[in-house]
Amino acid sequence: MTDAILSIRGLRKAYASGTEALKAVDLDIRRGEIFALLGPNGAGKTTLINIVCGIVTPSGGTVLVDGKDHLEDYRHARSRIGLVPQELTTDAFESVLSTVTFSRGLFGKRRDPAKIETLLKRLSLWDKRKAKMMELSGGMKRRVMIAKALSHEPDILFLDEPTAGVDVELRRDMWDIVRKLKSDGTTIILTTHYIEEAEEMADRVGVISRGELIAAEDKHVLMQKLGRKTLKLTLAEPMAEIPGELAEWNLELEDEGHILCYRFDTNAEKTGVPSLLRRVSDLGIGFKDLSTRQSSLEDIFVGLVHEERAK
């Protein structure tokens, strides 16, 4: 891929304890996209992020940040990356303004009070600039950590579980911030437990399980490719068992025979829906209602991870 801002090849990590956190992961992140990395706890999401950011040493493989090796050319790579870690770790006694100014300097950028002011205003932190970190609420601390990560104007932003333990309102808020960043051209890689979040925001979704990247696709493609639909017929009369004439559709009965359920692949050339409905009416089976439901990213995710575990 030519337009990859981040290119990961064969990335491995085995911890001293023997745990294999990553097993040869290949991943390309496109310039300007929002990429959501999904996976159960301990799947290797944070390890992946920490390797790219220089906090964890890889056991093998390469990471190219805009074409340059992230270890050999660490200054180049790191000055272009901002990281918001999962844990809210801050210097309790520092003020918001001083801690964000510190971060900009640490990343080698000239002091620029005007830029910091703009950044703090954008994250609704300007009023709190003189507050000490320990006086802030969890949501505010998270914002400060985002401000710190953005203080050196990075092209790539890593958000490790940005909305973990954040209430609904703040979560929406966070989503707005992320969207704004994307519109400015920042590439965003986020990990999340909330699949709703990936569904809502991501352009592409990667699923990681037990250190392996088991899917990385455009969100819509993934949902279409792996998604299934369910057709439910609410019957006029409950049915004791499915008639033999309907055997070819593999139907199921739900709700004590009140609902006839048909699961089908949205990608199949023939979904079998029209023929099923024809056969049902031919058999004189009456129904009061009909509904279809598309499986969510969550269903897909659960399906993928289970499949992987079964191997």
């Binding site: 220089g54 200054r75 790191r78 990281l83 870690p85 770790t89 801050t90 210097d91 990343f107 080698g108």
Partner: peptide
């Protein structure tokens, strides 16, 4: 834990 920032800095 704030060392993350130092370790990820250029």
């Amino acid at each position: 834990g704030t060392i993350y920032e130092l370790l990820s800095a250029p």
